[in-house]
Design a binder for these strands. Sequence first.
RNA 1: GACCCGGUAGCUCAGCUGGUAGAGCAACGGACUUUUAAUCCGUAGGUCCUGGGUUCGAUCCCCAGCCGGGUCACCA
Length: 508
Amino acid sequence: MDDLSQVLRIRREKLDRLRERGIEPYAYNFDATHRSSGAVDSFEEAEAAGTLDEGGHAGMVRVGGRIVAWRGHGKSAFAHVEDAGGRIQLYFKKDVIGEEAFADLDLTDLGDWIGVEGPLFRTRTGEVTVRVDSWTMLSKSLRPLPFGKVEVDADTGERTVHSGFADAESRYRQRYADLAVHPEVREVFRIRSRVVTALRGFMDGEGFLEVETPALQPLYGGASARPFVTRHNALDRTMYLRIADELYLKRLIVGGLDRVYELSKDFRNEGIDRSHNPEFTMLEWYQAFSDYEEQMDLVERMCLHVLDTVLDTRTITYGGKEIRFEAPFRRIGLVDSLSEALGTPVADLSDAELRARAKKLGVPELEGAGRGKLIDKLFGELVEPDLIQPTFVLDHPKELSPLAKPKRGDPELTERFELYIAGMEAFNAFSELNDPLDQRERFEAQARLRDAGDDEAQTIDEDYIRALEYGLPPTGGVGMGVDRFVMLLTDQSSIRDVILFPTLRSEE
RNA sequence: GACCCGGUAGCUCAGCUGGUAGAGCAACGGACUUUUAAUCCGUAGGUCCUGGGUUCGAUCCCCAGCCGGGUCACCA
C-alpha cells in the first residue's frame, strides 16, 4: 500500500475505517423506488397536484447513484448523485440523519455508489432535492474518477465542464471512466443502440429474415481487404475472420431464403483511422427478384425510418454542415459526373490521358492502375468531396466490382451504387452477379491481380461458384456501415467515438 | 507506412537562454445547517513516457524506442 499514490492510499484507509465501523463497503443490492429523473417527476406531479406537506415535502423516495459532486457545510452537506436517469441533488443534515450517520459521510468520496432514502423538497434556489433521512454505502470507489466541475448557466442552461477528462487515449482505454464522467458519451451509445434496434425493426418489417453466417471462415471473400488469419487446432487448418458476409448470404438466397439480412462484426486487417476500425459493424441484406434500382428506394426508406424513429428529424448537423434527408436522394453516374468535372467525356479519354490528369492532381501510386482504378481515383479527387447531401453514385467500372452484374446497355460498367453522406461512403450495393460463368471469370481476373501483387484482390471461392451454378435468382444486395451511420446521427468525427472499445495498441 | 503535434501530481494544464518543478480542480486538516464551478484558512501529493547521449548539471538539447492525436497514403 505504501507504493500507492496518496489519493489511492487515502481511499483504502477509508475502506478499512468503514469496515471498522461495521459498514459493509460493497453491498449486494439496493431497492430503489425511482431513478433520479423519475423522482424529480414525482415531486413535480405532487407539487402540481398540491399534495405537498406543510414543510413542502413530497413522498419518500429511495434513489441509488454515484456521487458526482459534494459541497460540505459543516453540519450539513449538498451532493449530487447520478444514475441512468440523470442527476439529483441530495441534502444531508446532521440533525436529520443523526450524528453517527453524518460522521460516516466523511468516509465517502466522489465516485462512491450510495443509496439514500428521504422525502423530496425544493431548495431555496429551486432545485428538487432529496432530504436524506438515511443513506447506505453501495460500493466504495478506490480510484478517483476524473470528474470535471459542471457549471450551468442559470439563464441559458448552458453546461460548461471545467478541467474534465480530455485525454483521448485514456478515454478510449478506460471507456468505463469516460462513460462514468461524460453523460454525453453515454447518450451517443444509447443512440447507437436505438439505431440498431430501428434497423432491425425496419428489416423485419420489410419481411427480411435475420440470419447468422460464419465469422470464422475457411476462405474469406465478398470484399477487397486483407483478413485476420487464425488457426483451428483440431482441424489443423488456417481459418480467417470474415471481411464481409456477402458470399454466405447469397448462398442463402440460392437456398430459397428470399430475403435475408445479417447485422454483425466484420474484420479487416487494415490501417486504423477516423473512419476505420479493424472490427466494425455491417448490416448486409439481399433480396431476391430485386435489382439495385429497387434497393435505392429501400435504402431511402430505411434512412428516413431510422431518422424518424431515433431522432425524430430528417435534418441533421454533421461537422457543422446541415444535411437534409429528402427522398428521392440525388443520383449521379460515377462516370457521368466525372466527365462533367473533367470537362471532357471520360469515354473520349485514353488510359494515358486519364493517368496524366490524375498525375496532375497529385494522385500518388498510379503504377499498374487500370482504367477502372484511374476513374475511381479521379472521381475521389474531383467529385467525392462535394457529396455532402445524401447522394447515390451509380454504375462503377467492372474492374472494381467483381460481384456486381454488368450494367444494362454498358457492359464496361456494373449496376452498383454507393450512397455518400457528408462525404462518407455509408452504403454499397449491387444488382448481384448471378451468372456463374461470368463470376468465375471475374474471380480469375481478381486472381491475376493477386498474382500481380495485390494482396487485397479477392480469392476464387469454388464453393460459391457451385452455389451460383444451382441458380441465384436476380438479387439486389446492400451493405451498410453501421458505425459510420451512427457517426452521422451523433455528429462524431471519429469511428472510435461510436465504438465502445476501439482497437488500440497494447498499453505495455 | 510518411510527416506534424503531444506524453509533467488522480484530472486539466503551465514550466523562460539547461540549474532536479508550479497552478486550478480533486484529496487531507480546520471553519461553515439551503449550497450548486459553494466559500474561507492551512497541508500534502511527482518514475517530468522509456532507454541512451551531450553537459559540472537535462522536464528542457540530441538519438532511439513506446503510446496517443492529426494530416496524407492504404482501406474499390
